[in-house]
Design a protein around this nucleic acid. Structure first.
Lengths: 106, 106
DNA sequence: ACGCATTGCAACTCGACAGTTGCATTCGGA
DNA sequence: TCCGAATGCAACTGTCGAGTTGCAATGCGT
């Protein structure tokens, strides 16, 4: 069970440029060079970001002619969403219990 | 609408020590000194992490006697979860559309 | 076959931040 | 009142990662 630390995915999502790339790929697939033309960073920077995103399971690549086309994957994100929601509810429940105890029982 | 970049919250969640602190506070509230006794880092490190977490709306502090007791807040996390799930579904839907187009329509 | 665009590899810079240590301060309890 | 434990502030170190530039290699289209 368990919810081991999702910090790896979080780090992948924690960079602004990387987030722009990721959401951009959510609109439609694109190659590194294409992204470099749209965003204000070098192609190499984009390539590194794509490696990180792919390593985190947020992006998948596919060779298309001589281009490497990347697209965003929702799976990892939605499973993360489920985990977070579960954790959040646990916290709030526990906190509610404590507050109730403090008011009643003292 | 829009879902502006949630990278701020992500950065707050992207550190292992910070994640340990946060989930620990999800179990039960605690002061910085108490956390420093449980975790293998100095109190000052913990304090800085708590500031970051509080800045991200993930933690709230409350003075209790001479102690500053912190507890985890689920709200920010569950709203993030909702956003992520929505985004993920959009990606997968768009990707599905593209795949269908490629197969049918050529 | 040839040229242009694409990808890939490598070295380098620079700033942000996690973590530490030391010291001052404040405040509750015996 | 006095001691111990808690917080707060400040300076410093070291590492990690985002971004750049330059060059080599590969492959599609004409």
């Amino acid at each position: 069970m368990s919810t081991s630390a999702p910090t790896a995915v979080f780090s992948a999502l924690a960079d602004d440029t990387r987030w722009r790339i990721l959401t951009r790929l959510g609109e439609s697939p694109a190659s590194a060079s294409a992204l470099a033309r749209e965003l204000p960073v070098s192609r190499q920077a984009i390539v590194k970001h794509l490696e990180v995103l792919r390593g985190a399971g947020l992006v998948e690549a596919e060779t298309h002619g001589r281009e490497l086309v990347h697209h965003a994957l929702g799976g990892r994100l939605s499973s993360l969403a489920r985990d977070l929601d579960r954790i959040a509810q646990t916290w709030d429940r526990r906190l509610g219990d404590l507050k109730r105890l403090a008011e009643e029982g003292g």
